[in-house]
Design a protein around this nucleic acid. Sequence first.
DNA 1: TTGAAAGCGCTAACAA
DNA 2: TTGTTAGCGCTTTCAA
Lengths: 345, 345
Amino acid sequence: MPEQSPGSRPTLEAVAARAGVSRATASRVVNGGDGVRKPLVDKVLRAVDELGYVPNHAARTLVTRRTGAVAVVIAEPEVRIFSDPFFSQQIRGISKELTAHDTQLVLLLVEGPGDFDRITRYLSGGHVDGALAFSLHTDDPLPAITRRAGIPTVFGGRPGWTADPGERAVPYVDADNRGGARVAVQHLRDLGRERIAHIGGPPDQTSAMDRLDGYRDVLLDMDPTLVAEGAFTVESGARAMAELLERRPDLDAVFVANDLMASGALRVLRERGIAVPEQVAVVGFDDMDPVAKETDPPLTTVRQDIEGQGRLMARLLLRILDRTGNGAAPDSVITPTMLVRRASA
Amino acid sequence: MPEQSPGSRPTLEAVAARAGVSRATASRVVNGGDGVRKPLVDKVLRAVDELGYVPNHAARTLVTRRTGAVAVVIAEPEVRIFSDPFFSQQIRGISKELTAHDTQLVLLLVEGPGDFDRITRYLSGGHVDGALAFSLHTDDPLPAITRRAGIPTVFGGRPGWTADPGERAVPYVDADNRGGARVAVQHLRDLGRERIAHIGGPPDQTSAMDRLDGYRDVLLDMDPTLVAEGAFTVESGARAMAELLERRPDLDAVFVANDLMASGALRVLRERGIAVPEQVAVVGFDDMDPVAKETDPPLTTVRQDIEGQGRLMARLLLRILDRTGNGAAPDSVITPTMLVRRASA
DNA sequence: TTGAAAGCGCTAACAA
DNA sequence: TTGTTAGCGCTTTCAA
């Protein structure tokens, strides 16, 4: 274990002295060693090792103007924030990708409307090189904030507004919600179902709208009485199912916009003695772990790779940060979905 | 003084020039304005405003040796990490407190054993002023890591090992698990229950052990056949309940070490037609939202203020960072618990 | 290929 | 109370 004089840590100067080279050469070696002769590289490396040298991050940032940190902004007023496995998996993916690129994750939790100022200030304060944000609602102020802060930002989920004409489009990563929904509904059709209902999510979330659009793509002659609205929670799914059953006792299938609502719907069907999938087939969305596997019966659903989405968000941002001014901005990414067949449909 | 070129942000130099003062005075104003005459303060403030000046964080850190950032280290191999409402609430509290003190939260997720090196390096790399860590298991490597990194750290949950003699004790924040358990069990006694069982958590977690100790405090003549071990999950609670019922069909109460397990236990009791609380009274721990309220019957449980604990962790760390070398280290904090009576006991 | 030297933007002695 | 000045530790021209 290298000596660590309490208080002051060794500087590059010390390393250079120990290796018998100039500070400039030491710096070159520490930053990859390009254009430095082998023996000198080795000498410096040894000195680094012996001294236990760690570069001073602030000093480096001061001259390079790169902080090596990225903000993850989460604006979700509800308690859900983290307990939502969605976020947690997304963050895992982000964390992995950032770590692999020696970039730090600064977490910015928006606690209330008054926080937007604070966030804006922080984002434009040069603390981070870029930001990753989750924009779930159409009226989300986050896109405006990051734009105002003038900081490169990648969104998780398609933002709900359209950019002004001539304005650069906002890069985002999202699952193929519409395509996934289409596959789900088509599957029910292939099963011979004829009155396929839909339990949708909140209309102010783009993912909910996209899934509804996918449903409509297949069921062009869709009957509005077959559609009910939920809030992506178990309870709201149960309520919506009861509502649909009342309105359309003849329905023979339901495509539910997420697994949580699907589990609520299944409960209601079970309570009423309606056999799944014999009488009513059910397909969910997300393949949420462990919910989807443990429903009764296990849920057929549309899987999306949430952790992968997080990783992609980070990768996209890192790429934007790396193109030093030149080159076109990378496009948004839509990740594929796949139908996972279990027992409910 | 030439206007700052578009793109690069205004420096303190520019502010000083605009206000017609020296850079030092401008700096003083930006940092609180102590000992600067009112009119000058105003001038500088106006210049700051007009120029949209934001201090360069790296430059400031370089000289003050304070980063204004704190790491939150989470080492939890399982997926649970964030989906566990425990963490999410704790982080909320931490975030609130740090934000109130203009301190940033850098999230460090430990993805695997190989990550410990990376974390150690980061922690000793001067990126952050201190760390908050969650140490849940007795064999947790985190305490050793933060100690090796020589960085002030506050733990969430009592660490499982005892400091070497002469070594400074590790500051931590924890709920009064033992006291809470005592109150819970005493409540069951007061109800006239005589064969009070216990479903405990994993023995490698101090919270589980402390709750078991509390149970024992009241039931000095405790019968080992009345104690079963779970893993803090719904399923494990159900299993443990079944096991207890088999071993001791005569039990008339159960104190369960957390609400998740309690909900599993309630399910088993319901399935077997055992009336709660008439035949078997049940008390949980945590008052986890929304679990405790929505069990059937609603759960009597021991509440702890998890968000408050997070806030305390941050406050404790901030205080340690503020005492500039002198003064005694603040002690650990044990937060109170309280019994919340609902229908199950 | 290497080194000398000029800052990056800020704070904090020390002087005035 | 205000200004002058010397760095904080590093990268990066520019010369050698």
